[in-house]
Computed example of a mutant assay.
Amino acid sequence: MQEELIKKLSKTYEPSSMIDMRFREKDIAFKTDEKGNPIFLFIGKRGEDGNIKGERYARTLKYDNNGNKIKDHWEMKGKAS
């Protein structure tokens, strides 16, 4: 993923919600966890049915016992349709 997109996805958004926006020439949608961190990402072109056709990603976030982030990794999970 592009550094600029990673930076946008590192922000905190409304908890437990689906956020839709544009990133450059692509449509993106992501689901946030209970803390407002994006955890699922769909990126591509939005069709007439409202769904994004393109790629989907999942984020792994792990914290230590003190609440410090020890792992933050996005992994491509395949096609989004």
Rank of each mutant, 00 (worst) to 15 (best):
M1Y: 08
M1S: 12
M1Q: 10
Q2C: 08
E3F: 08
E4R: 10
L5I: 02
L5W: 05
L5C: 00
L5Y: 04
K8G: 02
S10E: 13
T12V: 15
T12A: 09
Y13I: 02
Y13C: 04
E14K: 15
E14H: 04
E14S: 05
E14P: 05
P15C: 03
P15K: 06
S17Q: 06
S17K: 09
S17N: 11
S17M: 01
S17D: 10
S17E: 06
M18G: 00
I19W: 03
M21E: 14
R22K: 15
R22N: 13
R22P: 01
F23I: 02
F23V: 04
R24A: 14
R24T: 10
R24H: 13
E25R: 13
K26V: 00
K26W: 14
D27C: 12
D27E: 15
D27P: 09
D27A: 14
I28V: 12
I28T: 05
A29T: 12
A29Y: 00
A29L: 09
F30P: 04
F30R: 04
K31G: 05
K31V: 10
T32L: 06
T32M: 05
D33H: 06
D33W: 09
D33V: 06
E34R: 12
E34Q: 11
E34G: 10
K35R: 15
K35S: 14
G36P: 07
N37D: 11
P38W: 09
P38I: 08
P38M: 08
P38C: 00
I39A: 02
I39C: 05
I39H: 02
F40M: 13
L41F: 07
L41V: 00
L41P: 04
F42L: 11
F42I: 05
F42H: 11
I43M: 14
I43Y: 03
I43N: 00
K45L: 09
R46T: 02
R46E: 04
R46Q: 11
G47N: 10
E48P: 02
E48V: 00
E48Q: 08
D49L: 03
D49R: 03
D49G: 04
G50N: 07
G50P: 09
G50F: 07
N51I: 11
N51K: 14
N51Q: 13
I52A: 01
K53L: 09
K53A: 13
G54W: 03
G54T: 04
G54R: 07
E55K: 15
E55D: 14
R56F: 13
Y57G: 02
Y57C: 02
Y57T: 02
A58C: 10
A58D: 12
R59D: 08
R59P: 01
R59H: 09
L61Y: 06
L61A: 05
K62S: 14
K62G: 01
K62D: 12
Y63R: 12
D64V: 06
D64K: 03
N65K: 15
N66A: 14
N66V: 07
G67R: 11
N68T: 08
N68V: 07
K69C: 10
K69Q: 14
K69L: 15
K69A: 08
I70E: 03
D72V: 08
H73T: 13
H73R: 12
W74Q: 03
W74D: 01
E75P: 01
E75Q: 14
E75A: 11
K77H: 04
K77S: 05
G78P: 02
G78K: 02
G78S: 01
K79F: 08
A80Y: 04
S81F: 13
